[in-house]
Amino acid sequence: MKESTFKKKRKRLVFRTAMLVVMAGLVVFAVFSSLKGDDAVIAKGEDAPNFQLNKFKNDETVTLKGLEGKGVMLNFWATYCEPCKDEMPYMNELYSKYKEQGVEILAVNLDATDIVVEKFLKEYEITFPVLRDKQGQVMDLYNIGPIPTSIFINPEGEIVEQVQGALTLSKLEGYLQQITPE
């Protein structure tokens, strides 16, 4: 008699604890998910998804896969974006130095018309490859919100860092060093 009551109580405690833990878990999950929101870009540490785009004014296609073994900086930009204009010269400045060390800079342009891009490239004397993403597919793939956004991918194809907003020269250099192959 005593034995069975004890067992019953034990069972009850286990049941109650389990129910409460499960429900508390669901609540934590809900609150956490809602606070996290959906403005996050693709997470750090994930593999960068592959894509294929044409170089501007050039039929040469670039795929991310094709650049394996190199560090890749993906920069999403447009001519009408003011902060983009600020960081472009820095990228230009560091491009040739890091290209020798095995880092590629890919500037993915989101404009609608070629003419504005052409004028811009001429004006800023851009030397690194510019890719056109007219449909915004790659932007969609990488879940890009406001521009400029830069994504730094290491030689293993993993996302090391993502930065929203314009970069300064020193910050840019720091990130580029992080993805330089050894």
Binding site: N50, F51, Q52, L53, T61, T63, V138, D140, L141
Partner: peptide, 10 residues
Amino acid sequence: KRVGEPIPGA
């Protein structure tokens, strides 16, 4: 609908 394996951008 897209035919074949999608490579975004292509």
